[in-house]
């Protein structure tokens, strides 16, 4: 089975590293896409580290950027 974790940059930016052979746990759903049926992972766990990858509706959080907007986090000091 192939599991899709979404854009890699999202994981990398959250310091969630993967290497060949790593044991992982995935929670998600299988879904039909134009590229065939894939397992859309919503949460990935590895070595006690957990990361939410998708919204409850299955959209990659990478699209929105994820937790920052949801949590109404404080901004960095950069200009708008």
């Amino acid at each position: 089975m192939t599991a899709d974790l979404g854009p890699a940059g999202y994981l990398a930016a959250r310091h969630f590293s993967l290497a060949p052979g790593d044991p992982v746990k995935l929670a998600g759903v299988s879904s039909a896409t134009r590229q065939g049926t894939v397992f859309l992972a919503r949460v990935i766990e590895k070595g006690g580290q957990s990361l939410v990858l998708r919204t409850a509706q299955g959209a990659p959080l990478a699209i929105a950027g994820g937790e920052g907007r949801a949590a109404q986090a404080k901004r960095q000091g950069s200009a708008r």
């Binding site: 940059g9 959250r14 990478a62 699209i63 937790e67 907007r69 950069s78």
Partner: peptide, 9 residues
């Protein structure tokens, strides 16, 4: 944009 160091729409 970078928002607390992570990319945000």
């Amino acid at each position: 944009e970078l928002c607390n160091g992570v990319s945000s729409f």
